[in-house]
Design a protein around this nucleic acid. Sequence first.
DNA 1: AGTGCGGCCTGTCCGC
DNA 2: TGCGGACAGGCCGCAC
Length: 271
Amino acid sequence: MPELPEVETTLRGIAPHIQGQSVSRVLVRNKNLRWPVPAALSSQLPGQTLLEIRRRGKYLLLLTEKGTAILHLGMSGSLRITSLQTPAEKHDHVDIIFANDKVLRFRDPRRFGCVLWTTQPAEQHKLIAAMGPEPLSDEFNGDYLYDLSRSRKCNIKSYIMDSKVVTGVGNIYASEALFSAGILPARQAGRISKPRYQVLAESIRQVLTAAIKQGGTTLKDFTREDGQPGYFKQSLKVYDRAGLDCTVCQQTIKQKVLNQRSTYYCSHCQR
DNA sequence: AGTGCGGCCTGTCCGC
DNA sequence: TGCGGACAGGCCGCAC
């Protein structure tokens, strides 16, 4: 499942191949993604030069002079650099074809992802504008998390998974960061002390940074732009480890559903 | 304003 | 072996 580290891994993989390149054509095989792929993408992106590729949360932004393509990988999406000689497979829904004959191919079996086009500044786009700070930026820290949480009745796990609070923390890394910080996922966000939020902010930062270093986490769907898996799965301490021993205290890792999401934790290490 | 949940999808796995 | 059904997940958009 692509979370922030997987999206960052994808960005780093594709950027060298297509940055500065001119788009020659857009091929949409199936426009029925989370939202329909707009016709404007096919009519306005060709002829444009990719000035920059940026990540905001889990969104990838392909910036050109005329507008910005906004991509999201949903939960089963991936991007590859390929060529037109490579036949498209069943779930390869969109190709962005470049003048250097490279093809950026969007695959998404479950079609929870999206490929959009906007001519306004991307940061003003509805999907981007309301997002909270990047977890790896300076504005994200314990003070920020603490101050914003004071009136919140929801549990800490859904709080840090709220993209308006902080962007890019999904189900896997939320469990991992809470384990690292020693905080039980069900604890009420508004009742956690400032020192614990300092630890949590640092845990989120560290878990994400470590995952990026390992090329993300591959459980089922995720592959990097070159088709290789990410290697962070072997570093997961609690996620998908229900019934196994805690690597710290040897007690059994527990699983429960919180806000319709599988949640993993150690009731001995986390309080 | 904050919270909770439905809905979008397909592949995988389980039990019969 | 085949089949149905549950489940997984990001996250918007709506209802409360």
